[in-house]
Write a protein that binds this DNA or RNA. Structure first.
Lengths: 161, 161
DNA sequence: TTGTCTGCAAATTCTTTGCAACGTT
DNA sequence: AACGTTGCAAAGAATTTGCAGACAA
């Protein structure tokens, strides 16, 4: 049962201004360095992602690409672009548990955030240094070399806001 | 809750003996209490899950059910059973990021574990009280009423062990 | 030119559903 | 008898892939 429940991301989170532009440049550079070419489809996906702080599904990326006109107006192209960007660690994939992957830009330097899922599909990003510290301490305790970590909280609703 | 005791996590697989049997009884009881009947398919799924401490895909559950002979030898039945058990909060769903859902029994009382993913697909469960404490502190800081949380670590490989 | 990118359609994979027969209560 | 349960086949949804033509370097 997946009646296309909408998932809305909240911008609760003041993000560094220019982060999108910075990521866009970084992404273009990285793609070029990988020996790949500057086609319109992938460029459009990069453009869209640079303008979004939090997760989008492939379909949502396509919608936004389409809205802007131009090339990239194809789901296969979007998926291919997302795959490439993910392989280059330029985007992060989030599984919200509804069988649809969501993607968001990954800032260079490991700067990242996690997600709180609310009933109804709302997704809210958050970042917390104490949590990051706890994760790293944990990894050491477990004796594993961490390459990444995903944390998804499920909440009934904000107790305050 | 979850006093940050100095309990050392890092159990590879040290689970309380009898946990499987306990869960099985609990599951059967809960299903009965929900007004559902005791068919062979769901019973087989419960049987399989009770014998596994960590995640299985629907297909893996089916394989094990089939191996034991008897009813339940059908993927649709397995999915339906897993759905029901999940709705009753008797199983947990894990998205390892490969587009296939994995399920494991959920012990009553909130007792649970998280997962470390290694390259190659190996999944190792762990539990850590300090981490749990950190999560609860975090939720309070965020001002949300937590109903659950998923933590997935990605590791290159054990640094020691 | 050479090798990459795109779009379109077809194919895959995972999961859900319709329906008739069957089992439990 | 009433109603949940199961199996099989078909349907769906998300994601991937084969190909031929368009493009970038």
């Amino acid at each position: 049962m997946t009646p296309a429940s909408g998932v809305h991301a909240h911008h609760h989170h003041a993000e560094t201004p220019g982060a999108g532009r910075r990521w866009k440049r970084h992404a273009q550079q990285t793609v070029r360095d990988a020996g790949l070419r500057a086609g319109g489809g992938r460029a459009a996906v990069i453009e869209v992602l640079s303008g979004e702080e939090c997760v989008l599904t492939a379909q949502e990326v396509l919608d936004r690409v389409t809205r802007k006109g131009g090339p990239g107006g194809n789901l296969a192209t979007v998926y291919r672009a997302l795959d490439t960007l993910h392989a280059l660690r330029l985007v992060t994939r989030l599984d919200a548990g509804d069988g649809t992957a969501r993607y968001e830009r990954a800032m260079p330097g490991g700067e990242h955030h996690h997600h709180v899922l609310f009933p109804g599909g709302e997704i809210r990003p958050f970042h917390d240094d104490d949590l990051e510290a706890a994760i790293h301490a944990l990894a050491e305790r477990l004796g594993v070399e961490l390459t990444g970590h995903d944390i998804v909280l499920h909440a009934a609703r904000p107790t305050t806001d």
